[in-house]
């Protein structure tokens, strides 16, 4: 997982080729932290198929809002710099995997 923030988001996500998965989270978001280990596992399993990034919204609130993310947990999928799908609030790791298989 690559840590992204307001300084490298453009480079790592918006200017990247192919599929990028961004896990938006924060230290206070318990559901995010509950989901995180399985997201990391999914990232390892699919290392060649997509780039996995994690974005802590602390300090990156404006960036998150610019990506129309205003609630956690949220996982967004970007293809060639364009947001193509998003899962927010009530979703499971199986949903993330299914979406990934759809898009990869």
């Amino acid at each position: 997982m690559i840590e992204v923030n307001k300084d490298n988001f453009e480079q790592e996500v918006l200017k990247a080729d192919g599929l990028v998965v961004v896990d938006f989270w924060s230290e206070k978001c318990e559901p995010c932290k509950a989901l995180m280990p399985s997201v990391h596992e999914l990232a390892e399993k699919n290392a060649g198929r997509a780039k996995f990034c994690s974005l802590n919204i602390a300090g990156n609130k404006r960036l998150a809002i610019s990506q129309k993310v205003l609630g956690l947990p949220t996982i967004a999928f970007y293809k060639n710099g364009e947001k193509v799908a998003e899962l927010t609030k009530d979703f499971t790791i199986e949903d993330v995997e299914a979406k990934l298989n759809d898009l990869a």
Partner: peptide, 18 residues
């Protein structure tokens, strides 16, 4: 608007609304 401003979890989302 779930996750777009509608929330049921203050600790999850309060940060956004500074």
């Amino acid at each position: 608007f779930r996750g777009k401003g509608v929330s049921y979890c203050a600790t999850c989302d309060a940060d956004f609304f500074e």
